[in-house]
Computed example of a mutant assay.
Amino acid sequence: MPTIEEHCKESLLLFGKNFARVHSWLDEFAGKHPYGMRHRKLRHHEAGIQEVIVLFGIEAGPVARQHIESDLREEGWKPNDPFPKNEKDYIRIGFF
Rank of each mutant, 00 (worst) to 15 (best):
M1G: 13
M1Q: 09
M1H: 13
M1N: 15
M1S: 11
P2W: 06
P2F: 07
I4W: 12
I4L: 14
I4V: 09
I4P: 01
E5I: 02
E5D: 11
E5P: 00
E5N: 05
E6M: 03
E6V: 08
E6T: 03
C8A: 01
K9V: 04
S11M: 03
S11F: 04
L12I: 05
L12N: 07
L13Q: 14
L13H: 12
L13K: 12
F15K: 01
F15C: 07
K17W: 09
N18C: 05
N18K: 11
N18G: 15
A20I: 12
R21P: 01
R21M: 08
R21T: 04
V22D: 00
H23L: 02
S24K: 15
W25T: 06
L26A: 00
L26R: 01
L26P: 02
D27H: 05
D27S: 07
E28D: 09
E28M: 01
E28S: 06
F29E: 04
F29N: 07
F29M: 11
F29C: 09
A30V: 13
G31Y: 05
G31K: 00
G31R: 00
G31A: 07
G31W: 00
H33A: 10
H33Y: 10
P34M: 06
P34G: 02
Y35L: 02
Y35C: 05
G36M: 09
G36Q: 01
M37Y: 14
R38Y: 12
R40K: 15
K41W: 09
K41D: 10
L42H: 06
L42C: 08
L42S: 04
H44Y: 04
H44C: 00
H45K: 02
H45Y: 03
E46V: 01
I49C: 06
I49E: 03
Q50G: 05
Q50M: 08
Q50I: 07
E51D: 09
V54M: 14
L55Y: 15
L55A: 08
L55H: 07
L55G: 09
F56M: 04
F56I: 10
I58F: 13
A60Y: 00
P62Q: 03
P62S: 03
V63F: 02
R65E: 05
Q66I: 12
H67P: 08
H67M: 13
H67S: 10
E69N: 07
E69V: 09
S70G: 04
S70N: 14
D71G: 15
D71Y: 14
D71F: 10
L72V: 12
R73F: 10
R73D: 15
E75I: 02
E75G: 03
G76C: 11
G76I: 02
W77N: 06
P79I: 07
N80C: 14
D81L: 04
D81Y: 08
D81G: 05
P82M: 04
P82W: 09
P82C: 13
P84N: 14
K85T: 14
K85C: 13
K85P: 06
N86I: 12
E87V: 12
K88P: 14
D89S: 03
D89E: 09
D89K: 03
D89V: 05
Y90K: 01
I91C: 13
I91V: 14
I91P: 11
R92C: 05
R92H: 13
I93G: 02
I93K: 03
G94L: 11
G94T: 04
G94Q: 05
F95L: 03
F95K: 04
